[in-house]
Design a protein around this nucleic acid. Structure first.
Length: 250
DNA sequence: AGCCAGGCTACCG
DNA sequence: CGGTAGCATGGC
């Protein structure tokens, strides 16, 4: 997995996925994209911004990514959208607004995303982190040093594990870290590139080594797009072999 | 009718 | 360390 030949195969597989699926424009930031649409008159749904890498542009957008990253834990994105809609309808779109509610009240709003008792507690915990950390982080250099400073402290927040942390750092703050999730493991395994049980940190450093780029900005763009096309590919794989059909052949 | 979904915590040996 | 139960809704 870590030798030069495997790194090359990972890079080739990613290049193929990138050209096959095309620009993705992750992470979807619905509120900001809506504002952008009105300004330009473009019609683009669901907040994705393919080919543009300067999102999110606002505190509200960064917080929406944090919220979505927590809500999507082991949960279909369609259910997360329902919960985000409910938060918007209730005007609970800032960390301060979530902390102003009691946990049960917040849980009632995010109910469609499932695990709502846990997730309302997680959201309140990460709201505290966000209010304390976002001002400096938004202005910090998008460097490995910034990443290594903030990542352990984000991981210390209740409800934030490695995938949630890396999604926030990569997509809300454009920091150079690679997101490993169930999709990543499935796609790598399908290409015979990694054992899906490989520990998180090991997979992350391996993917980062395989998909290195000359500059920090290019690295972040590649890693943002890579995770997005891995998700597309994994969903395509699922459509071709739905659960229950001959996954286990012989 | 089940099985599954972009995890994480707590607890066990 | 590796393994597992519990958490919950909506789609197929």
């Amino acid at each position: 997995m870590l030798d030069a030949r495997h790194r090359r195969r990972v890079r080739q597989a990613l290049a193929s996925l990138l050209s096959h699926h095309g620009p993705q424009g992750w992470w979807p930031v619905r509120t900001e994209r809506a504002r952008f649409e009105t300004q330009t008159g473009e019609r683009q749904t669901r907040g994705y911004h393919p080919g543009e890498f300067d999102f999110p542009r606002t505190r509200e957008g960064r917080w929406e990514i944090v919220t979505g990253a927590v809500l999507t834990q082991n949960t279909a994105w369609s259910n997360v959208e329902r919960a985000l809609d409910a938060l918007g309808a209730a005007r609970v779109t800032a960390p301060e607004a979530m902390l102003a509610l009691d946990p049960a009240g917040l849980g009632a709003i995010v109910r469609p995303a499932g695990y709502f008792n846990q997730k309302s507690r997680y959201l309140r915990a990460v709201a505290e982190w966000f209010m304390a950390s976002d001002p400096a982080l938004a202005a910090a250099p998008r460097s490995r040093a910034t990443l290594e400073d903030v990542r352990p402290r984000l991981l210390a927040v209740r409800g934030v594990g490695p995938e949630t942390a890396d999604s926030v750092l990569l997509y809300a703050y454009s920091l150079p870290t690679f997101v490993i999730d169930a999709y990543t493991r499935r796609v790598l395994a399908a290409h015979g590139l990694a054992d899906p049980t490989t520990p998180y940190e090991e997979l992350r450093t391996a993917c980062e080594a395989a998909l290195d780029e000359p500059t920090a900005a290019e690295r972040v763009r590649l890693w943002q797009e890579s995770h997005a096309v891995i998700v597309e590919e994994a969903k395509a794989m699922r459509r071709e072999t739905p659960a229950g059909t001959a996954r286990r052949r012989r």
